[in-house]
Structures are given as structure tokens and as C-alpha cells.
């Protein structure tokens, strides 16, 4: 029986480790998880980690050092399925806001001065900048429910087909009055659903922490927000917060046109 269990590895690159923690937070389900799969490597949870062939690797965090690039490539080589776990791995996270190498150098110098780094740093990127990713589980941090659902499907051998939908869908399931319609700065229509619209359900606009949803209409929402009186710079800044590298192309085109 043991031989049949999926071999899983959970890895952390640069991030807050909140996603790995969220897995450990599935207290009720943990015994079942450990029963269902063979966890080969999970630095946060255990010490006897083996870096061997894997069925599924869950990778949290963005790539910010050259060493991480190597580590990541090694994980890909060893794994049948690679899952980007959390926002940082999916889009690069907040640390990926500065993609312009020059600006990044400037910031770097401002923070660290001329210190020589032991681990040479690179511009922060999502993991799919370096390797092929099979599935994405965004979130800052990931949601327990979404993780368990996905995990169970993987264990049963049929990872779900992705069906991208914005936060607004869950927001309507929860019967919230639309904050954007009321003039608030809500990024729900541009953000991948998965949190179940927790923020709008507490009357707080969505800031986009699940990252961009496929097919989001950024141009239209940009103009809409401008119409509602928000400044161009403010909108850009807010939109960029959780979009990581995924909007670079959009901004290039957008700035050229405007």
C-alpha cells in the first residue's frame, strides 16, 4: 500500500511561509493528509527530508536568489507535477513590484548599501519565469478549503480543470451589495476567486491579494476608477500591489496608448 502513495514535497522559496503554515493549519485533516500521501520533504513540518523523485511538488514563494533558481530547476527535474502555492509563487508577490532592473538596483542599494551578498540576489519573479508550472493555487495566503479541494483531487489522480472566475462571483454568492458600484476602490472583477470574497463580505473592498484573474478587463476598470475620482498614480499603484509580473505587458501597452 505504501508504495502506491503519492510522493509529495513542499518547498519554500522567498515568501512569508504563510502558505506552508496554512497547510499545517488544516488540523482536522492533517492525519488524513499524512495517511493519503507520503510527504518526502516539508521543512516546516519535519526534519528527515529526502530530496528524491516526487509525484507532486508544492512550491511556495518567489524566486529572488540565484541559488533558488537552481533549487527550483532541481525540483522541476524531480517532480511529475509542480504546483505554484500562494501568490508569491504564482505572480511573484509584492516583492515583484519592481521589475525594471535599474530601479531594482537602486532600491537594492538603498536598502543594503554596497554590502556584498552571500546569496547573489535577482529581480523577484514567479516560479513560472524559470520552470513549467502545472497548477496554480494563488492566495495570500492560500485558503484552506481551496487547498484541501485541490489536494484531494490530486491524490485521487484528477487535478481539476481550471475555470477562472473573479472574486465578484463569490461576492454575489454571499449576496453583498457591490462596493465598486458604490464608488469604492474594489479590485474584485480583476482578481482570481478563491478566498470566497472575504473582504467585500466584511464591507472592505478587494485589494486583489489572489492575483489577476484570467480574462480580467484592466483597461475598463482603470477608466472606471478614474471616473470615480481616483488618480492615475493611485490606481496604478494599487493595481500593481498583488499583480506581480503578470501585468508588465499590460502596463507597457497601456502607457503607450495613453
Amino acid at each position: 500500500m505504501k508504495g502506491k502513495k503519492l510522493k509529495i514535497g513542499i518547498y519554500e522559496l522567498t515568501g512569508c511561509a504563510g502558505d506552508a503554515l496554512m497547510i499545517l493549519n488544516c488540523e482536522k485533516e492533517l492525519p488524513a493528509i499524512f495517511q493519503a500521501v507520503d510527504i518526502q520533504s516539508f521543512l516546516m513540518a519535519k526534519s528527515d527530508n529526502i530530496d528524491d523523485e516526487l509525484d507532486v511538488a508544492l512550491v511556495e514563494g518567489s524566486v529572488t536568489t540565484e541559488k533558488e533558481v537552481e533549487e527550483l530547476k532541481d525540483i522541476r527535474k524531480r517532480s511529475k507535477i509542480v504546483v505554484a502555492l500562494g501568490l508569491c509563487a504564482t505572480v511573484g508577490g509584492i516583492q515583484a513590484r519592481f521589475q525594471d532592473p535599474q530601479k531594482w538596483q537602486e532600491n537594492f542599494r538603498q536598502v543594503y548599501g554596497e554590502t556584498k551578498m552571500e546569496l547573489p540576489a535577482v529581480v523577484s519573479k514567479p516560479i513560472d519565469a524559470y520552470i513549467k508550472v502545472d497548477f496554480y493555487l494563488p492566495g495570500c495566503p492560500i485558503s484552506k478549503e481551496q487547498f484541501l479541494n485541490f489536494f484531494t483531487r490530486v491524490v485521487k489522480g484528477a487535478p481539476p480543470e481550471s475555470y477562472p472566475q473573479p472574486v465578484c462571483v463569490s461576492c454575489k454568492y454571499k449576496e453583498n451589495d457591490c462596493l465598486l458600484k458604490n464608488g469604492l476602490f474594489c479590485l474584485g472583477p480583476l482578481t482570481a476567486d478563491g478566498c470566497g470574497a472575504v473582504c467585500p463580505s466584511h464591507n472592505l473592498p478587494c485589494v486583489g491579494c489572489w492575483g489577476p484573474v484570467q480574462g480580467g478587463n484592466w483597461t475598463s476598470e482603470f477608466y472606471l476608477l478614474q471616473d470615480k475620482g481616483f488618480s492615475r498614480e493611485f490606481i496604478k499603484k494599487k493595481m500593481a500591489n498583488f499583480a506581480g509580473t503578470k501585468l508588465s505587458e499590460f502596463w507597457k501597452q497601456f502607457d503607450r496608448r495613453d
Partner: peptide
């Protein structure tokens, strides 16, 4: 259009749905 889906989710005559197979872990 923002493709947010709100118009159809609030409409009293919209019926569309999706189906998901959600396996139980144990």
C-alpha cells in the same frame, strides 16, 4: 464589460450552473 458575472448572478431568470466533483479525502 468587466466580465464580473454580477448581472447574471443577480438576475431572477438566469439558470446557468457548473458542476464539480469534490472527492472526500478519506
Amino acid at each position: 464589460c468587466l466580465s464580473c458575472g454580477s448581472c447574471s448572478l443577480v438576475c431572477p431568470t438566469c439558470n446557468c450552473y457548473n458542476v464539480q466533483d469534490q472527492p472526500l479525502l478519506s
